[in-house]
Design a protein around this nucleic acid. Structure first.
Length: 367
RNA sequence: GUGCCUAUGGUGUAACGGUUAGCACACGAGUUUGUGGAACUCGUAGCGAGGGUUCAACUCCCUCUAGGCACC
């Protein structure tokens, strides 16, 4: 899932994302709650219509912002009090408000509001975050269920001249829970079983890629995937590097989101296939530290690209690679042309989407 | 021709008779994992040249060179 935190994948239009073949976008409850706000989002008819995107949208609940913006908030059992990073105003985000905002957004996949512990937390803190997330999961399901019936009617996308991307979606939505527990297998197990008892449409693995060792993340994902139901989607939140995704897919994870392709693109790091993606042996990437990767990271701003007129990625057929040499791309970054960010984003998203398509085909073939 | 002023990394600048000459930009390398921040970290690189005074000179003095200003 490419990330459209504030209702747009940075530098991309919804049509761009359609052209890239993106199937679903992730957006963020916390950011949209600050701007445009709950009432405005309701009045605007939800995010699909607002940003003219007719594919599915998954919304992060805001729980992660407690962690990533930890200097500006305070957590209690009731919820989290944020100090807005925009104007300093206090915002009280609770599981209930998160559900209401996600309903206003018209989210297709609603994430529970959770408590995320940092990667170097004590067992006590992991335990606390996991138990609180479990309690909040229950509150989220109750609120989600009460909102669902009325939300069904109001979230329908009216046809309008703006709706150029296709037919209105159906109104099926899903609520996903989030397994917490840090790097402790027993806490993870308790979390997963507790959430399954409540019952959700899908299960996410949260609280990883937050500073812990990769080996620990692999061990936890493997363990959690053994517990989670076979017939519900599993979603690894926030990661990761391409080889991590390959490994997690083999452990049974279905969905991913990550800022790496888009953020790295804007900072001049491009992902480049070092072999034909159609013939990669994906089974070679089950270890945390594989010996050889199937891609290279190209730092396009480097001087060595100054006169390099070769394509960015000879195995790629994205718009950028069809039109842009390494030298030109480096130049665009050097002179800070906005086009650099856009072309780089197109390529990195295409790389990640190609990776996921290849993995889907491979999994379908082997099953 | 005469007088005066100036000279510090690639560029623009700071400081001081006494620790390793500071800063910004540029350049280079790295980091980015449920995106507040086209962000962050690290690095390369300098006292115009020569002589003198001094325990010690980028700093004070002299000469030269280059640039600027004024006058004839």
């Amino acid at each position: 899932m490419p990330i459209a935190t504030k209702g747009a994948v940075k530098t991309m239009s919804s049509r761009d994302m359609k052209n890239l073949g993106a199937q679903i976008l992730l957006s963020n409850t916390y950011h949209l709650l600050l701007r445009p706000g709950l009432e405005a989002m309701r009045e605007l008819g939800g995010l699909h219509r607002f940003m003219n995107w007719d594919g599915p949208i998954l919304t992060d609940s805001g729980g992660y912002q407690v962690f990533s913006l930890s200097k500006m908030n305070k957590t209690t059992e009731e919820g989290v009090t944020f100090k807005s990073h925009i104007d300093g105003a206090r915002v009280n985000l609770t599981p209930e408000l998160s559900m209401q905002m996600q309903a206003a957004i018209g989210s297709d996949i609603v994430m529970q509001f959770d408590d995320v512990a940092a990667g170097d937390s004590s067992r006590e803190r992991y335990d606390e975050a996991m138990e609180r997330s479990l309690r909040w999961a229950g509150r989220c399901k109750a609120e989600y269920s009460s909102l669902r019936a009325p939300a069904k009617q109001s979230s329908k996308i009216a046809s309008s001249p703006l709706d150029e991307l296709g037919a209105p979606r159906n109104d099926e939505t899903a609520l996903f829970a989030i397994v917490q527990g840090g790097t402790h297998e027993d806490l993870r197990e308790k979390s997963a079983r507790g959430l399954m008892e409540i019952g959700f449409d899908g299960y996410a693995i949260g609280g990883l890629s937050v500073g812990e060792k990769r080996e620990d993340a692999y061990r936890i994902v493997k363990r959690v995937c053994e517990i989670l139901p076979q017939d519900k989607p599993r979603y690894f939140m926030g990661g990761g590097m391409p080889e991590e995704i390959v490994a997690y897919v083999q452990m049974g994870v279905d969905m991913f989101d990550c800022v790496i392709p888009t953020r790295n693109a804007r900072h001049g790091t491009l992902f480049v296939w070092n072999q034909d993606p159609a013939t990669v042996d994906w089974s070679a990437y089950q270890d945390p530290r594989p010996e050889n990767l199937f891609y290279d990271r190209l730092r396009i701003t480097g001087e060595s690209n100054a006169l390099d007129q070769s394509p960015i990625d000879s195995h790629c057929d994205c718009e950028t690679c069809k039109t842009t040499s390494r030298a030109y791309m480096r130049h665009l970054f050097s002179v800070q042309e906005l086009l650099a960010l856009r072309l780089a984003t197109i390529h990195n998203l295409h790389f990640y989407l190609t990776l996921m398509r290849c993995l889907r085909e491979w999994i379908q073939k082997t099953e």
